[in-house]
Nucleic acid binder design. Structure first.
Lengths: 305, 305
DNA sequence: GCCAACCTATGCACATACCGCATGGATAAA
DNA sequence: TTTATCCATGCGGTATGTGCATAGGTTGGC
C-alpha cells in the first residue's frame, strides 16, 4: 500500500523538528497523533525511519531518504494547491478573449490595461477573427468570452449588448459627398461601392442597410481586409460604409468619413459567453472591469446596457 | 481546507476517462465512490470542474487547470513512492564505505565490481583514511560501514573479522637480507627502520611486533604516505615492514619483500558497523556480496570468519 | 413520440480511519 | 534516588470512505 499524504506530512514535521512533541505543538495536533502517523508510515514502508532514544529523535539512512522524498511530495501538494487556489480566485491564469479585428485593435488595448491594473498576474490572450470564427472559439471553449456582433443568435450561447457602433460613409478626399455633414445610404448607392468580404458581419449589415433604403447595390470590388478597402477608397475607386470602430483601421490613405443616415445603422457588439457555464473567475473579473470601464469612446460609438 | 490525495487521484481518473463509470471500472471502485470524491473536491475548491450532461463529462476551464495541478501532485506521489521503495529494497541509493587506503586501492575495486554486477543501480562511495578517521565516519553515519583495523574496540560500534593480512619485510633490492626466504623482526631491528607515521595502524602493529621480539627500535625516518616509505627503502636508506595488502602501494621503486616471522604478525581487518542500527538494505547487500566473495587473494592475505 | 439504455447523484448502512485524552514505560538530568 | 521529559499505546467517540441499491434525467433507436 502507499503512504498517505497525512503520514508523509506528519513525518516531515517530526523529522524536521527532531521531536514528536515539538512537531505536534507546531502542527496543533496531539503528540499521539504524530506518533501513530509515523509508526504507520514505518509499517507501510516496512523500514525504521527514526531512531528514538527517549531523549532524542534521530534519522536513519532510510529516514533521510524518506524525508527527501516526502518533502517533495508534500511540497508538490502544498504548492500545487496554492497555485490552484490563486487560479480559482482569478488571481492568475489566462483570460482568452475572442473578438473582431476592429475591437481587438481599437478597444481591447485600453480594456486590457485597465484589467491588468487590477489583476497584474492574469494574462490576456486575444483571438481575433470574423464573427463566425469568434463565436466558434467561444463554443469550443477556446475563448472564455467574445465581444462581437451576433447575427443569428446561436444555440448554447448567451449574449448581452455592450456597445453601439454607428456606420459612417467612407469617402475619398475631395469627393463631392464629402462636402456634406451627413450622407444617406441612397447617396452611397449612386456611387461605385467597395465592400468587405461576404464573410464579414459588416457586409451583412451594409447589405441589409441598402435593402432597407430601397437600393440594390452590387459592389464594384470586395476585399476581406478593411485596410485594403480603405486603400481602394483613397485611390478614388469608389466609396464604402464602415462602423465607427473600423475607421481607424482604414489605413494611411487619404479618406474622410461622414455620418451616415437614412437610416442610421448601428452595429451592436455583444458580450457572448457559453450558456449554462460559470465563467472562470479571472474572465468574470474582466467583464466586471468592462462594466466600470465607461470611459470616452470614439464619436459614433457608445456604451449600451 | 486542502484537497485530499484521494480526491485528486479520483478526479484525474475521471477527467482522463471523461466518464465516472469508466474511471470506476479502471480503478476497481464503485462509480458512487468517484462521484462523491469529485463532488467533494468541487466542494473543497468551491468550483465546478466537470460539466456533466448525463451522456458526456466535459472539463470546465477550472477543471482543466485542476487536472494539470492534480496530475502533478498525484504524479509526484506515485513516482516518489516508487523511488522510495526502490531505495528501501536496496535497489538504488549509495553505499558509503570507509576504509584504509590499502583496502581501498587493492581489494575494494574487485569487491565493488562484484557488487555492481548484482545491483547496478546502487552507487558506491569510498572514503579512505586512517583508522581513526575511518571509524569516525561510521560513528557519524557518513559511512554505512568500514573495513579497517580496530585498535581499542570503541563504544557504539560492532565489528567482526573479515581478512587476515600478514606483515612482510620490505627491503631494497640487493640487500643481504633479501637473499633469505624469511626474515625475522630481530633481523630488521638491526637495520635502519623506515616507519609510517604514528597515526597509522600499521605503525602501532610494527611497534608492538618489535616490542614482542624484544627489540627497541627507533625509526630512522617516518613518512605518512606508504609510497614515500617505499621510495626511501628503494633508495637504500633502510628497511621497513608492511602488511601484504600494502605492498602494491610501495611505488615503482626497486624494493623486494620477504615473509616476516619471529613472530608472524597479522593485521586483522574487520567489518565495522554502528551498534544497534539496521543497515540500509543496499549496504547489507554489499556485505552479503563480501561473504560470497571468497576469491583468491594476494599471498599473505586470507579470509576469516 | 415513446421506450429502452445508459450515466451520474444520492440515501443508507457498515467498516475503517483518525483523533484526543489519559496513562504507561523508559531515560537523562538534578 | 528522584524528577522531569519524551515517546508509545489502550480506549472511546467522531469523521471519513465504501458499496449497494435506486432515483433522476438525457440520448438514441424504433
Amino acid at each position: 500500500m502507499d503512504a498517505t499524504l497525512r503520514q508523509l506530512a506528519a513525518y516531515v514535521a517530526v523529522a524536521r523538528a527532531a521531536s514528536f512533541t515539538a512537531a505536534a505543538a507546531h502542527l496543533h495536533v496531539s503528540q499521539s497523533t504524530l506518533s501513530r502517523a509515523v509508526a504507520d508510515l514505518e509499517r507501510v514502508l516496512d523500514a525504521r525511519l527514526l531512531e528514538r532514544d527517549t531523549r532524542n529523535v534521530q534519522l536513519t539512512a532510510a529516514g533521510l531518504e524518506t524525508l527527501r522524498v516526502a518533502e517533495q511530495i508534500v511540497g508538490a501538494h502544498e504548492s500545487g494547491m496554492k497555485e490552484l487556489r490563486r487560479y480559482l480566485l482569478g488571481e492568475s491564469g489566462v483570460v482568452a478573449v475572442a473578438t473582431l479585428p476592429s475591437v481587438a485593435a481599437v478597444l481591447l488595448p485600453r480594456m486590457i490595461s485597465a484589467f491588468r491594473r487590477q489583476r497584474p498576474r492574469v494574462a490576456v490572450r486575444i483571438m481575433d477573427g470574423l464573427e463566425r470564427a469568434v463565436l466558434g472559439r467561444v463554443l469550443s471553449g477556446d475563448a472564455d468570452f467574445a465581444i462581437t456582433t451576433v447575427g443569428a443568435s446561436p444555440d448554447r450561447l448567451d449574449h448581452r449588448p455592450l456597445i453601439r457602433d454607428q456606420f459612417h460613409a467612407v469617402l475619398p478626399e475631395g469627393h463631392p459627398l464629402a462636402e456634406r455633414d451627413e450622407v444617406t445610404w441612397e447617396d452611397l448607392a449612386a456611387e461605385p461601392f467597395l465592400a468587405v468580404g461576404p464573410q464579414s458581419s459588416v457586409r451583412r449589415l451594409t447589405d441589409a442597410a441598402f435593402a432597407q433604403a430601397g437600393a440594390a447595390v452590387t459592389p464594384a470590388a470586395e476585399a476581406s481586409n478593411v485596410a485594403t478597402v480603405g486603400g481602394l477608397v483613397a485611390a478614388g475607386l469608389g466609396v464604402s460604409a464602415m462602423p465607427a470602430l473600423v475607421l481607424p483601421l482604414l489605413g494611411p490613405g487619404h479618406v474622410v468619413h461622414r455620418r451616415l443616415t437614412g437610416p442610421v445603422v448601428e452595429r451592436r457588439l455583444d458580450v457572448v459567453v457559453r450558456a449554462r457555464r460559470t465563467l472562470p473567475l479571472a474572465a468574470a473579473a474582466f467583464l466586471d472591469v468592462l462594466e466600470e470601464f465607461r470611459t470616452e469612446l470614439p464619436p459614433g460609438v457608445s456604451w449600451m446596457g
